[in-house]
Amino acid sequence: MPGNTCVRCGTVMSPHDVVSVASGDGAFRSLCSRCFNTEMAHLAELHAFEHPEFTPVRLADADGVVHEFYFRSLLFGDQLSLEAFELAPGEEDCVGFRFQLLGEPQSDPFELLGNLVQKVKRALTVRHLVEHAGNLEVAGTTVRGRIEWDSGQDSGESGRLPRVVIDGRRVDWTDFGAMLMAFEGWQFRIELVDPSDEA
């Protein structure tokens, strides 16, 4: 597929490695993360920057379920973003848990990786959902997760509905609403946190 071929080096990319870059004329180019970082390092005049690559890591969650995390690094001028994410078995698109950490472009990438792995481990020790009689329920009074676009939902004139990813599981917006009905009459507080921050 042309959209999955890096226009700079010709590499056929996995969907999670595609970086869509806007050109001056408004057109978009598809680059692999290595070529994206090379271009960003040139623009930021970082002559000694090397694109880090890491082997996937397998980590167990609070229930002993093992999750395999892949890594991607992206250079954003004065910051280096390192992401850890899961891929669905047999698929190449990101699903489940996803984490990000920001560091200095000149920082040791393996130190950044170590900090990110510790962040992942901390998150995996906490369960926000429990299964009861075949239904998912909120485990306590705090829920942490990630907001995603739900490509399968179109709410017509009001726009698209989101879905959430909690404990690495995708939950439809209506199902999440049904879970919250157990707290009918309660008050709530929503805090939106940048992906690179500790949730």
Rank of each mutant, 00 (worst) to 15 (best):
E131V: 14
V138H: 04
E68K: 04
P56A: 01
G177C: 10
R58K: 13
I166V: 14
L75Y: 01
L102N: 13
D63K: 07
V66S: 08
S151W: 10
L31E: 05
F110P: 02
V7T: 04
C32D: 03
L102V: 10
D175A: 13
P162I: 09
M13F: 03
P56C: 05
E53W: 08
E86I: 01
E68M: 11
D197Y: 15
T141P: 00
R29I: 02
C94S: 15
T142K: 13
R122S: 15
C94T: 15
P162T: 12
V120P: 05
G114K: 08
D150E: 08
V95F: 11
V95D: 11
D194Q: 12
R169Q: 15
L161K: 03
V126W: 01
C94G: 08
D175C: 10
H47P: 04
E191Q: 14
R8Y: 12
F28I: 10
Q106P: 05
T11D: 12
S14K: 12
M1C: 03
F183I: 13
F71L: 00
D17V: 01
T11G: 04
E86A: 01
A133T: 06
F71R: 03
V95R: 05
L112N: 03
M181Y: 04
L161P: 00
F97P: 04
F76Q: 09
H47Y: 15
T174Q: 10
P109C: 02
G140C: 12
E191H: 13
A22W: 10
G103E: 09
L161R: 08
C94W: 15
V126F: 11
I190M: 13
G140M: 04
D17L: 01
R170W: 13
E184T: 05
E148F: 05
G26L: 04
R169P: 07
C94E: 15
F176G: 06
M40I: 00
R169S: 11
Y70G: 06
L43H: 14
G159Q: 07
A178V: 07
D194A: 15
L102G: 06
T142F: 13
G64K: 08
L102W: 13
E68N: 09
S81E: 07
D63S: 14
D93W: 13
T174F: 11
R163T: 14
T125S: 15
M1K: 04
D93R: 07
A123V: 10
D63N: 12
A22S: 09
R58D: 09
G177I: 08
E53G: 11
T5L: 13
D17M: 06
P15Y: 06
A182F: 06
L124F: 08
P89V: 10
H47V: 14
S14F: 03
T38V: 13
F69K: 00
H51Y: 11
A199M: 12
G26C: 05
Y70K: 06
F110D: 09
F99V: 06
H67G: 08
P162Q: 08
D172C: 13
A178H: 05
L116Q: 06
D93P: 01
H51W: 01
V130H: 05
E92R: 03
H132I: 10
E198I: 03
S155N: 14
F49W: 06
